[in-house]
Nucleic acid binder design. Structure first.
Length: 493
RNA sequence: GGCGCGUUAUCCAAGAGGCUAGGAGCCGGUCUGCAAAACCGUUAACGUCGGUUCGAAUCCGACACGCGCCUCCA
């Protein structure tokens, strides 16, 4: 078992070797809490959630830090708009973020620090940077002098001259170099402020991550994650700050997730083409959204659309239906007294056994390869098919190799733990999805049941014209009848 | 303009020199009064042009198209 991760810094997959054997430190940039989260945030959350879960599964003692940026221009702006203070806004959206992430089934990080709780750490780093000549004070602000850090832009592979040629950077009077960025901003009237050696003010955006990661993970740690759009400037600036202040390597592995697109275009606030997590969860089950995110590799872009979400839902239902069938068998057998020990397996049984035997090695191989969840899901689906085939084949026989079925069921649960799936019982989940769809129809279940009885009577009397009329009528209302040997049930189409 | 990424069948999506990915769909079958649902089976692909190689979706080069970052962004 050898985990390989794609490191943005090298542009290659590298063997993951933690700083301290058996431990892993991971810092992921959280959100600026000034609005509800959109599904881009959901993706970043889910991606690093499964990375966190898989590292734990692989046996590492993981410290996972994900911050809240709770002081920022955008928070202040919103507070001004609403005529309230920044804290009210920040706290409101921290709560909303927590609710959304809980809905999506994210495991809680080890620590979730807030920038405003780490002002003294921030000031400490800025002081160190000034002492080492990497930063300078200018009219109450403090700036990082990028020219003093030769490795600047080493993560994104750019150079300063080209960046300036872009000509979209304005030269501020206060800055010595146009690319210099603020570590500390002197407060304007009416803005929140903290005391500092340079006067009252607040931290710049990038410095908080340097301070909080050092506080909880040390000067050098294993994994730093975030969205692709954070590579420059945010992560580049973090490197300059942390390595400038500490004089040692900051991060060993840089991991960046791809975007969520709408019609092949990046979804973003500035483009206005975004969906909030809340909106999407009104329509789709949270696990469907998670499954959709896991169906592509975390570095690739994914296109958010109704069709893609519906496909994800179909796929997830397929797995859940199989799990429900397995549960049913296990349940029945545990109540029956005379379970025969089965020594030989049929052809389909042997194929199923093979899939079960291969399950974990193949699942681990996929996840070891830079957390390839899409490939891992393929392993699940192949096992589902083998299981379905086996169950269909063996239905008439009174004896089942119970241990094989139990093992398969356990493996799905184990993989589900890593992927954050299948936490609810299959029967409950399928029922929940059905109930959610039930809101979309305009008939009561009493009416439906009455029609089903009428149809059954018509069928018994071989009045198929009438029975088909009823079936078509229900279908017009989006209700699909499911006939089986045990009678008729219904579904929302 | 600079830097980077991508292009796989009808759609979504893994793979990265020879080994069935997978899902949704289509089609066929089982079931059914007929259907539906479910399950089973099946189908098809590697942007274009060159090169390397016994062998290329996979490596190299050029081109085309799409996208991202370079400004707050997950």
């Amino acid at each position: 078992m050898a985990l390989r991760v794609y490191n943005t810094f090298s542009g290659e997959k590298e063997l993951f070797i933690p700083l301290i054997p058996g431990k892993a430190g991971m810092y992921v940039c959280g959100v600026t809490v000034y609005d509800y989260c959109h599904i881009g945030h959901a993706r970043a959350g889910v991606v690093f959630d499964i990375i966190f879960r898989y590292l734990k599964y692989a046996g590492y003692d993981v410290t996972y830090v994900r911050n809240y940026t709770d002081i920022d221009d955008k928070i202040i702006n919103r507070a001004n708009q609403e005529g309230t203070d920044y804290r009210t806004i920040a706290d409101r959206f921290i709560l909303a973020f927590d609710e959304d992430m809980a809905q999506l089934g994210l495991a809680k990080p080890t620590v979730e620090p807030k920038a405003t709780d780490h002002i003294s750490g921030i000031i400490g780093i800025i002081e160190a940077l000034i002492a080492k000549g990497h930063a300078y004070v200018s009219e109450g602000d403090v700036y990082y002098a990028v020219e003093t850090f030769p490795d600047y832009l080493k993560l994104s592979g750019r150079n300063l001259e080209e960046m300036q040629a872009g000509a979209r950077v304005e030269v501020g009077d206060k800055k010595r170099h146009p690319m210099d960025f603020a570590l500390w901003k002197g407060s304007k009237p009416g803005e929140p402020w903290w005391q500092s050696p340079w006067g009252n003010g607040r931290p710049g955006w990038h410095i908080e991550c340097s301070a909080m990661s050092m506080e909880f993970l040390g000067k050098t740690f294993d994994i730093h994650g975030g969205g692709k759009d954070l590579v420059f400037p945010h992560h580049e600036n973090e490197i300059a700050q942390s390595e400038g202040a500490n004089g040692c390597q900051f991060v060993r592995y840089w991991l960046h997730n791809g975007f969520v697109n709408i019609n092949a275009e990046k979804m973003s606030k500035s483009l206005g083409n975004f969906f909030t997590i809340r909106e999407v969860l009104k329509k789709y089950d949270p696990e469907t959204l998670r499954f959709f995110i896991l169906s592509a590799h975390y570095r690739s872009p994914i296109d958010f659309s109704d069709q893609n979400l519906e496909e994800a839902q179909s796929g997830l239902e397929r797995i859940y239906s199989c799990l429900a069938a397995l549960d049913e068998v296990l349940d029945d057998q545990s109540h029956s007294a005379d379970v025969t020990i089965v020594k030989t397996l049929s052809q389909t049984g042997m194929e199923f056994q093979e899939k079960v035997d291969q399950f974990l090695p193949r699942f681990i191989e996929a996840m070891d390869d830079d957390f390839n969840s899409a490939q891992a899901l393929g392993v699940l689906f192949e096992t589902v098919r083998a299981a379905n085939r086996f169950l269909a084949d063996v239905k008439e026989i009174t004896t089942l190799p119970l241990s094989l079925i139990a093992r398969a069921r356990h493996l799905f649960a184990e993989a589900g733990d890593v992927l954050g799936l299948f936490a609810t019982s299959p029967a409950d989940w399928l029922e929940k999805v059905k109930a959610a769809k039930a809101c979309l129809i305009d008939m009561t279940s009493e009416e439906i049941e009455r029609l089903i009885v009428e149809r059954a009577e018509a069928r018994a009397a071989r009045d198929f014209k009438r029975s088909d009329e009823i079936r078509d009528l229900l279908l017009e209302h989006g209700i699909q009848l499911l006939d089986s040997a045990h009678g008729t049930t219904w579904n929302i189409k």
